[in-house]
């Protein structure tokens, strides 16, 4: 009799294990094999050899990436843009959630919220196309309006200095509805007795918001911000690529790690160096998530990722 516990288990759980098989295979193919493929960052890639047959070249790809001077620029841009997005987006979303919660009129609230949610559903391609329609020099609506007012048109697509503001604005615009929902859910979860008590104590509307709503939002804000900080080295490729595209005039102000990796791959076909830059980003991202998770854990054990 072969009554080894492992075979027993396998038999007992066979249906459930069968159900899990596609998922296990899926992550092997599309997550774990690519993870192993990261070794090309340490190789001199040639098409004949492929990932495994190409010759090793130690840290040359990394040296090339860091010595090119691009590494610092794109890493700094990625982090600074993400910090700006986190601050501006969360502030606006919290404000919108508080205001939505305070105004009367169910229909007004519903329509306002639907309108704010609209940009979330539009693809970055469409956003990029709309932005080009609005902002370009020759036929853009903004410049048409400026000319109509007798003012000098601005050449936005040739002026890097405008872009940090434009990108922060676009990010806030697109994320407003989504983030507001999270904060609104947090506000709706606040114990109504607190509001009643504030009412009895004669608190006015400002005191109610400042002393009840906002302090009760702190935990949600801290968690959402921390989780966002975990992704601080991941640039939103869809956004940057569709807003800027291949417009080299703007790269000094708008190039992030993700666009840099993509461009080195497509235009200079430098597979080794792009892979090294990608791996540098993955490692930075991993370290940040670990640090963030540690902080979340210390703050509120239940909200930690692991």
């Amino acid at each position: 009799m072969n009554r080894h516990p492992f075979w027993n288990d396998l038999k007992r759980y066979r249906v459930i294990l069968l159900m899990l098989t596609p998922a296990v295979l899926f992550y092997v193919l599309f997550a774990y094999i690519p993870m192993a493929g990261i070794i090309i960052a340490f190789k001199h890639y040639d098409y004949a050899g492929g990932i495994f047959g190409s010759a090793w070249n130690g840290l040359d790809n990394f040296r090339f990436f860091f010595e090119s001077g691009d590494a610092w620029r794109v890493t700094r841009n990625t982090a600074l843009y993400n910090i700006a997005f986190i601050v501006v987006n969360n502030a606006l979303q919290i404000a919108a959630a508080i205001v939505l919660f305070e105004v009367g009129g169910k229909w007004f609230r519903k329509i306002a919220q639907s309108a704010m949610f609209l940009p979330y559903f539009i693809s970055w391609v469409v956003v990029g196309a709309i932005a080009y329609n609005l902002l370009n020099y020759d036929i853009g609506t903004v410049n048409a309006l400026l000319r109509g007012l007798g003012l000098e048109p601005v050449d936005i697509y040739n002026t890097p200095a405008y872009w940090p503001y434009i990108l922060v604005l676009v990010s806030a615009w697109k994320g407003l509805g989504y983030g507001t929902v999270m904060y609104l859910a947090a506000i709706a979860g606040i114990d109504t007795e607190m509001y009643e008590a504030a009412e009895i104590d004669g608190a006015n509307i400002f005191q109610r918001v400042a002393k009840v709503t906002i302090p009760n939002l702190y935990p949600t804000v801290i968690i959402l911000v921390l989780l966002a900080v975990g992704n601080i080295f991941r640039g939103d490729f869809g956004m940057f690529y569709n807003m800027i595209g291949n417009n080299g005039l703007l790269f000094s102000a708008t190039d992030v790690i993700d666009t840099f990796v993509f461009r080195s791959l497509i235009t200079s076909n430098d597979i080794g160096m792009s892979a090294a830059a990608g791996m540098f980003q993955s490692v930075l991202g991993f370290a940040t998530i670990m640090a963030v998770n540690y902080s979340v854990r210390r703050y509120d054990k239940d909200r930690a990722l692991f």
Partner: peptide, 15 residues
């Protein structure tokens, strides 16, 4: 693990 670490664009494309 697949959320916190990824191989990045190039190995993914090659796979």
């Amino acid at each position: 693990i697949t959320i916190i670490f990824s191989g990045g664009l190039i190995p993914w494309y090659m796979t």
